[in-house]
């Protein structure tokens, strides 16, 4: 399992692996927004949590189709399924590798991007907490979409359509947590909901993804 994680991370940082792609996309989205809505600080500060969350969502989506498609194309998915690792474990490790290469950099970079959007200083901490709690759910849910579309040519677009609706709860509670944090309100409810959604997806979704892969490989 550790070997698989190390292999996926190594592949991500090698040529064509796509490491940093999500981060660069996030940066571009965040810098484009002030051009679109104008430079007024108070408007930007109000929409900043939503924009940062949408940026994170889209950046995450960008690399989802690679999770299983590359392994499917070169035949290693067949070999992994017949290997002595449970497929649910393979899915979980791949989600973790995806999170480390796309979600974690976003968490680390969020304070810098927050400044670009005039995010209130008291909301900065909540933004990091929200992304840290919410982005793992994005990666794990993504494996389900990737598992459903594995083997389809140009499955990326279908994948986005399948996965984005599942991201709605995380988006709602993630953005709400940052908004309440910025206004100094009680943050307990969105915090617990966000953490609960992530915990539930990590616990349940790998089984669904593994089942989808088994069906697709027949």
């Amino acid at each position: 399992m550790i070997a698989l994680l190390l292999r996926d991370l190594r592949l991500a940082v090698r040529a064509g692996g796509g490491f940093g792609l999500g981060l660069a996309f996030f940066l571009i989205v965040v810098t484009l927004v002030p051009f679109g809505v104008g430079p007024q600080g108070e408007i930007l500060a109000r929409i900043a949590p939503g924009i940062l969350w949408l940026g994170a969502l889209l950046a995450c989506l960008l690399s989802l189709d690679r999770i299983f498609a590359l392994d499917y194309e070169d035949g290693s998915l067949d070999l992994l399924v017949t290997a002595p690792i449970p497929l649910e474990g393979v899915v979980s490790i791949k989600a973790l590798a995806h999170w480390i290469t796309t979600g974690l950099p976003l968490v680390v970079a969020a304070p810098v991007f927050g400044i670009l959007l005039h995010l209130a200083p008291e909301a900065q901490l909540w933004m990091i907490v929200a992304l840290l709690l919410g982005t793992p759910a994005l990666s794990v849910l993504g494996t389900f979409g990737a598992a459903l579309t594995v083997g389809l040519k140009r499955g990326g677009l279908l994948l986005s359509l399948l996965v984005l609706p599942f991201y709605v709860p995380t988006l709602i509670f993630g953005a709400e947590l940052v908004r309440r944090g910025a206004e100094g309100m009680n943050t307990q409810v969105p915090l617990l909901m966000l953490a609960g959604i992530t915990a539930a997806t990590i616990a349940l979704v790998p089984f669904a993804s593994a089942a989808a892969i088994r069906v697709n490989l027949r």
Binding site: D74, L77, T82
Partner: peptide, 14 residues
């Protein structure tokens, strides 16, 4: 069992 398919399952950048 060890299975070997038509494709070798190699990662080209490794």
């Amino acid at each position: 069992m060890a299975y070997a398919a038509h494709s070798d399952g190699l990662k080209s950048t490794l």
